[in-house]
Design a protein around this nucleic acid. Sequence first.
DNA 1: CGTTCCATTGAGATGTGTCAATTCAAGTGG
DNA 2: CCACTTGAATTGACACATCTCAATGGAACG
Lengths: 247, 247
Amino acid sequence: MTGQSQELLTKPCAHDYKVNCGNCRLNSICLPLALERDDVEQLDEIVQRSKPIQKGRFLYHEGDEFQSVFAVRSGALKAFRTTDSGREQVTGFYFPGEILGMDGISNNLHASSAQALETTAVCEIPFNSLEKLSALMPSLQRHFFQIMSREITEDQQLITLLSKNSAEERVAALILSISSRNARRKLSATRFRLPMSRIDIGNYLGLTVETVSRVFSRMQKLEFLQVNNKEIEIKDIEGIRSLADIG
Amino acid sequence: MTGQSQELLTKPCAHDYKVNCGNCRLNSICLPLALERDDVEQLDEIVQRSKPIQKGRFLYHEGDEFQSVFAVRSGALKAFRTTDSGREQVTGFYFPGEILGMDGISNNLHASSAQALETTAVCEIPFNSLEKLSALMPSLQRHFFQIMSREITEDQQLITLLSKNSAEERVAALILSISSRNARRKLSATRFRLPMSRIDIGNYLGLTVETVSRVFSRMQKLEFLQVNNKEIEIKDIEGIRSLADIG
DNA sequence: CGTTCCATTGAGATGTGTCAATTCAAGTGG
DNA sequence: CCACTTGAATTGACACATCTCAATGGAACG
């Protein structure tokens, strides 16, 4: 079975037989809006679309040689790093249209591992090619600087969350973040499935599994949320916003 | 008093009257090692050296239009952002040779404020010029990608610290970080002055001032540290490493 | 030489972690 | 298809690290 035929399995629309950046429905998220049609085609040439990876498999490991950054096409991944004492820290979740792997640029080694939370397809963007193309295409260069800068600001938001906010505020903020990322992909902002485990959520938010679970229960009791294992329905988004310290 | 003459006041060596990137003693930290002599001169032309800013003054405010990134020449700054509920979160401390302001690239607005912790001189690097020069100089482009990537990995380290580590581990990690950054600048790794207040330290580490103060006292009782207000002397760096969860 | 902010120390309150038991969901093999 | 196994999720009781509140001491600055 070739990579190409496996890709087809993941697509709703069978006649969309040739995926490229120009026709990808995620390109408004992952690509610069500013890129001209011509530029998109050039970018398209360096992007490699490989076969999906199964749940639990790694896209790359911490310490691997850095070669590429990746754009998520479908599925979801978590990134995490291992501390010197062997504990793990989840540093991010990545959904379709989002870019990961940029933390490997500084040392030519991946600073974190990326693991699929469900069957996941990615576009691989070799960094050498991206660099060369960026030098020729100012808008691409700018876009990539912006993507990295966004990663920095998002990390800073997480820092703030971990440093200043209660368990309830942290969980509420994560739910709202996933909700709005769904909305950006034209999916439901109020009903969705969490691809990650409670353990991952707790790890990401600096909480124990038990605390995460208790917060979900409390939110359910308040009728802000309907929780059924990984299925989430937001019943009162304003209520959750009020918990999330947006006021 | 002109900017030039004020600069002189901050320099130990009066005959070093014309500062440029080529002769700056910080260039091994702040600049790409890979840059050729010629390239350095080109970079030098876009860098603006302005007069020092006084303690407490701002280099930029959160929400300001983003124009430039900055390299610290002398002194120290803190970066912080204000949450929706009005609380502040210190996101980083910046010492000579280090670059700040990159979080403003993604939205063309500074995502944090930068405030001088003591009299501080910076090199301003207009981002537009940096972009143009990067497109012409592959090594500069790469270097800047690396600097941004490093910022990401450092933020991830802080995330891990905040999420997983005790008060003692956090404070120990900060002391070790400042110590090694001093060493990189050929200053003492064991005796130095903390330019920031206990409030800033606590804010950065997600702790209250009181907890920070108590940790310092405990470390002193263990004879790992000699603390005299902002003056720090590391008596037993291995002891501090052991507290910092490096084991 | 007062004023103000920063730092330290103590005593008590509290949110979250730890430990433990139970239920639930998913996958496996008979 | 059902029993079995395994890991995930929930819930409760208790412990403890850190926060909060409060008082004092010390440094910096006009």
